[in-house]
């Protein structure tokens, strides 16, 4: 645990303030799919109440890293993760720690909108219900309404809250998934290319939403679009071939990258 003593070289984001505001720290995280190593010793710190973007070409390990943060990789049988990941200073691989509780604390939004084939209400209510967050039916309704409101979806679905979530448009479905994630009151929201299946207008809505959410949540977003990273994130980490090449304040990184590979990528030489 010597990582704890290592000084953070963290430049401040807009809303970040200090080193003790660090939500996630990862040290020497490596991921193996069977014999193949997908991530090599990644050290990354994620600030709270800010958006951190993970960028890089396809297959560089950014999604793999994201999925380590809520131990989603556990569901892949041949996947093995080594190294330390701390959320709020607690090791998430601690055998004492309940993975279900972790996933409640770390919400996730996926690439393709994946609402359950149930009603909008049930989609949002599912998380609070299984975690026992609502004491009464009224409580549950309140959580659903406020989550939909936070996801900016309430006005659009107010009159059809008991209709199937799969009947919504792609962008609305994705916001429903965000509402579903924030309904369990997470501290950290992971977003895996949340806009890649959406049109530009729906993308803009999601980006606005991310901007609003960052005042309350720590958000880590994987994106293929460097413009999107530049628009929504305060910090950016660039992955290449399973290695964290460079990370820093977004504006700084896009204007003045330190590494040659980062420069090549953001100027469009590869990827």
């Amino acid at each position: 645990m010597n990582d704890q003593s290592r000084p953070f070289e963290m430049a401040l984001g807009q809303s970040g303030s200090a080193a003790n505001d660090c939500k996630v720290t990862s040290r020497k995280v490596s991921v193996f799919y069977g014999q193949k190593q997908a991530l090599f010793d990644v050290d990354l710190d994620v600030p709270d109440r800010a958006v951190t973007a993970l960028i890089g070409p396809s297959g560089c390990g950014k999604s793999t890293f994201l999925r380590c943060l809520n131990r989603m990789n556990d569901t892949i049988p041949e996947c093995r993760v080594t190294g330390d990941i701390m959320v709020d200073g607690k090791d998430i691989h601690d055998p004492e720690l309940d993975v279900v509780e972790l996933r409640g604390r770390v919400g996730m939004v996926f690439q393709k909108p994946n609402p359950f084939p149930k009603s909008i209400f049930e989609n949002v209510a599912y998380g609070p219900r299984i975690h026992g967050l609502a004491r009464s039916k009224g409580d549950l309704e309140e959580i659903v309404i406020s989550s939909l409101a936070k996801a900016g979806l309430l006005s659009e679905v107010e009159d059809r809250i008991h209709e199937p979530g799969t009947g919504l448009s792609g962008g609305q479905q994705q916001r429903l998934c965000i509402a579903r994630a924030i309904a369990v009151n997470p501290e950290l929201i992971l977003m895996d290319e949340p806009c890649s299946a959406l049109d530009p207008i729906a993308t803009a809505r999601i980006e606005e939403l991310i901007d609003e959410l960052k005042t309350n949540y720590c958000i880590v977003i994987v994106t293929h679009s460097m413009q999107q990273a530049a628009r929504v994130s305060q910090r950016t980490a660039f992955f290449h071939l399973g290695v964290l090449v460079e990370e820093g304040v977004t504006a700084e990184m896009f204007t003045n990258p330190k590494d040659k590979r980062t420069q090549d990528y953001i100027t469009g030489r590869f990827g």
Partner: peptide
């Protein structure tokens, strides 16, 4: 049953049997 449904379930913190009984099996 598409894996996205399972991921959705795991993503909100459902345990394996909850994902099976609440989402995968009904579908």
């Amino acid at each position: 049953v598409p894996p996205s449904i399972r991921e959705g379930g795991y993503g909100v913190g459902a345990s394996k049997h909850q994902v099976m009984l609440h989402h995968v099996l009904p579908l």
